[in-house]
Design a protein around this nucleic acid. Sequence first.
DNA 1: GCCGTTTTCGGCCCGACTGTTTTCAGTCG
Length: 574
Amino acid sequence: MDKKQIAAVLKEMAVMMEIRGDNPFKVRAHQNAARIIEGLSVDLPALVKSGQLLEIKGIGKGMAEKISALLDQGELAEHQALKEAIPGGVLEMIKIPGLGPKKIKLLWQDMQITSIEDLEHACRAGKLAQMKGFGAKTEANILHNLQLLKQFRGRYLISEALEIAEALVQQLGEHPRVIRCRFAGSLRRGMETVKDIDLLASTPEGDRAAVMDYFAGLPGAAEVINKGEKKSTVRFANGLAAELRLVGDDQFAPALHHLTGAKEHNVAIRQRAIQRGMKVSEWGIYKGEERLPCPDEQTLFAHLGLSFIPPELRENRGQIEAAEAGQLPQLIELSDIRGMIHTHSVWSDGVNTIREMAEACRARGWKYLVVSDHSKAAAYANGLDEQRVGQQLEEIDQINRELAGFRVLKSIECDILGDGRLDFDDETLAGFELVIASIHSRFNMDEVQATERIITALKNPYVTILGHPTGRLLLSREGYPVNHEAVIDAAAELGVSIEINANPRRLDLDWRYVKYAADKNVAISICPDAHRISGLDDIRYGILMARKGWLTAKQVLNCYSAEELIRFAEKRRR
DNA sequence: GCCGTTTTCGGCCCGACTGTTTTCAGTCG
């Protein structure tokens, strides 16, 4: 097992122990160990071999033994025993907001509810409301969240899908009979969640069967859903399905364009072709009977009098008109990014030290790191009070004296309190070079209240960036309702930046509002919200959302130097 | 289950909210 898998087992054990009613501190020890293992920047087998695992704070003798067993044998007797004791459906209920381990235990042991389906039936029959500790409102709330869960079922985060899709493209590309291979569909357009993976490969006609056999037999393919000569679908262990289509190499580009969509984009492209006496389909582009050469997508667009439209823009948002006028933006790329904003460290709920995070940034070619740990109201996340802030700022000064050619900037992710005030007074805020203001509590406001709360916070001149504007968690939690236009208009007027939180579970600001914000001259910050070194690489998902929002590097705050960033923050404070 | 020690046992993060209660348990971040 690798680090990720071991961490997943430990997390699952923690949930199962909670449901069973074990010592909550034992539960937390497992959660902590999972976080530590996940965040390790060194090789785990080497650590175990040298006995250094025990030197890590939070890993004791018992945990080290469990980790070794998982590493060597890939399983753990205690984990198996827990799995036998608790039905899978019971475990799944933890995903429903409002249902925690205690209530789940009651449902399971007093009502014999062992699946999501059982639970829905019981809710509809009004049986939950009659139970001790439950009531009509709880029942309605569970039913509502069940509907959301069902709606999300069968959808996957872009990060989950990309990881699999990229591996598949590489493996298929290694097959000697595959000429070209790409993934297409909503994944290629950079949608924040996807239903499945669409793969396209070109092969000589006689070699299709061999390639399909290879595809169906790839490691990780848990189930072959269907298998034909031109099209096969395979399901992976996490439930995600990948469909592979095979075409001749001369059809690769039109097929790639067709499969990338979106539907509205394809309709508009076909209409445009017809207006020009041509015909576009997944098989090619034709003028009358003549099949026009189309070696790549660039050529396809050129035949239609258009410049290349990047996949992320192929929705239904004016991209064709812009391409015709030669006014498509030069979209931001990862290489435009100069520094990381919004990161956490061991000072609050992060896994790595400031120095480790800084060195990881430097190794990735970035020039600065903005450390923004939680403020004191976020007690659950070990938020900093004024005294610890002072100590942290001293540590940053020390690191800055030692790191050549790199800069750590002083920041805080300051909680926006219920009434829109900030968690620190102005004097404390003035000690930071920039301030990110975010909501982490009281999510149940209505739209008017929540919007007012945010705008009140933005009026504080020390606020540089608004963090995750809706607090949504993709596929699990709706954010608090926000009047996006009103918040963006206020940010524009006040000179506050809005973040695109690049954590693949958030991707908040939603890309659908990014263009509106940029058009109002709101500077956008693309922020990994990294709680560990590996979280820094989430920046790529933020870049995808920025591209979907038509952003250029000039519109993104962390494409500027540290000095320019500080100047941006200072402008408001004067 | 981990940690630290006045060292083998006691403490471990906490404030707010919700819905259920009639003083509090469960959940969340």
